[in-house]
Design a protein around this nucleic acid. Structure first.
Lengths: 205, 205
DNA sequence: GCCATTACGCTACGGGTCGTAGCGAAAGCT
DNA sequence: AGCTTTCGCTACGACCCGTAGCGTAATGGC
C-alpha cells in the first residue's frame, strides 16, 4: 500500500476511506476508459477527492494502477482438489477469470508496458502482483511432491529454476491465450494445457 | 503496409522513402523514449517529414507502432536443425533476441495493452505480428510429424487446437520470462523449457 | 484547551501533446 | 498543358500534466 501512517506521526492522518475510494475509482475508470485514456483528474473526480490528494499519495498513473490492480489478485486461492492436475486447473481458471475483467486486462498490460523502461516500476509489479501468484506455484508444487506426483529435487537451485519455469509457462500461456490470441481460456483449453504441462513436469530429471 | 498506391491513381504518389524513414524513426523513438513518451511530433521530426504527413498515412500512434514493430518480425526464420528440440530452441532463441530489443519490448507491450480495448487494433496485431510467428509453429510441427517425432492427428480441428496451444505456450512463456519475470531467456532456460514442452507434446493422445 | 503539524479541497498556472484545418508549392499521370 | 494528389508549414482549440499557494479541517502533545 501507499499511505502507511507510521503510528506516532503528528498531524491529521490520511483518510483510509479515500485510499479505498481512489483505488476503486481507478478500476472503474480502467473499465470505462482503458489505460491510455485514463486521467488522474478523472479518477479524482470519481473518487470524490481533489487531484492534489492523488499526487500526495502516488507518484503518478503507473504506481496508482499497480496498486489498484494488485488488490484484484488478493482473490487468488490455491484449491485443494486432491490431485496436481485438478489444482493446476483450478488456479489457471481463477487466473483466466481475473484476466477476463477489463480493468485487469488493460491495467496490467499498461503497467507492464511501462515497466519495460522503468525498473522501479517493474520491481513494484513483482512484489505486488507477481510474487503473489508465484506463491501458489510453490505451494502447489510442495503438495504435489508430498503426494508423490512430482519428483523431488535435491538441489535448491534446481528447485528455484523449475519453479520459475513452471510459473512463466503457466502465467505466460494464459496471458498470451486471452490477450494476444484473444480467445477464452475456458475449461477445454485449460484441460489441454494442464495435460501438456503435467506430462513435461512429471518426467524424471 | 499503409501506403498502398493502387497503381492507376492520378496525382503525386506517396513517397516510399518517407514510409521507411517514418517506421525507422518510430523504432528509434521507441528505444529512446519508450511507448508512453513517444509523440508523433517527435517521430515526424526524426523522420524529416511534417506531422501532417504522418496523420495522412496512419490513424494514430497505435497503428504506426504496430507497423514499425511488425517489420522486426520479418527476421524470424525456422531453422532446420535436424530435430524438433533443436528447431524449437532455435526459434525460441530468435524470439528471445527480438524481445531483448527495447523497441520491440515497449512497442509490442504498448500496442497489446491498447488492443485490450480496441478490437480492430487487435486484429491488426494478429495479422501483422502474431500470424507471422504462428506459421513457424505450423511448419515446425509438420516437419516433426514427418520425422515421426510428434504423433499425427486425424481430426483437423484437433490439429488447430494443438497448434494454438503450442503457440500460446511458447510465445507466452518467452514473453513472460523476459518482460514480467525480467530474467533473460538464455540457452539454459530455453533448454529446460523445450524439454518440458516436448515431453508434453510428444506423448500420445 | 491551546498549539504545532499534517492532510485536504480548491484554484490557478505554464508547458506540452493532440488531431485538424487551410494554404501554396511540388510531383506525378494522361 | 491540365488535373490530381501529396507534402511542408503554420496555426488553432482542447485537453492533460504536475506543481504551487492558500485557507481550512483533523489529529497528537503539552
Amino acid at each position: 500500500m501507499q499511505s502507511r501512517t507510521p503510528a506516532g506521526r503528528p498531524g491529521r492522518p490520511r483518510s483510509a476511506a479515500a485510499d479505498a475510494a481512489i483505488l476503486a475509482a481507478t478500476r472503474e475508470a480502467l473499465v470505462e476508459l482503458g489505460w491510455s485514456k485514463l486521467t488522474l483528474q478523472d479518477v479524482a473526480t470519481r473518487a470524490g477527492v481533489a487531484k492534489t490528494t492523488l499526487y500526495r499519495r502516488w507518484a503518478g498513473k503507473n504506481e496508482l494502477v499497480v496498486d489498484a490492480v494488485a488488490e484484484l489478485f488478493d482473490e487468488l486461492r490455491l484449491p485443494d482438489a486432491g490431485s496436481l492436475a485438478a489444482d493446476i486447473e483450478g488456479v489457471v481458471l481463477q487466473f483466466a477469470a481475473l484476466l477476463d475483467r477489463p480493468e485487469c486486462r488493460s491495467g496490467l498490460m499498461g503497467v507492464v508496458a511501462e515497466s519495460t523502461r522503468d525498473a522501479p516500476l517493474r520491481e513494484r509489479i513483482r512484489v505486488s502482483v507477481v510474487e503473489r501468484q508465484k506463491r501458489l506455484v510453490v505451494e502447489g508444487r510442495a503438495r504435489a511432491q508430498a503426494r508423490g506426483e512430482l519428483p523431488p529435487e535435491a538441489d535448491p537451485e534446481e528447485t528455484a529454476r523449475t519453479v520459475d519455469l513452471t510459473f512463466d509457462m503457466v502465467a505466460g500461456a494464459v496471458v498470451h491465450r486471452t490477450l494476444v490470441s484473444g480467445k477464452p481460456a475456458d475449461e477445454t483449453w485449460v484441460r489441454g494445457f494442464t495435460k501438456v504441462l503435467l506430462l513435461g513436469l512429471a518426467a524424471p530429471a
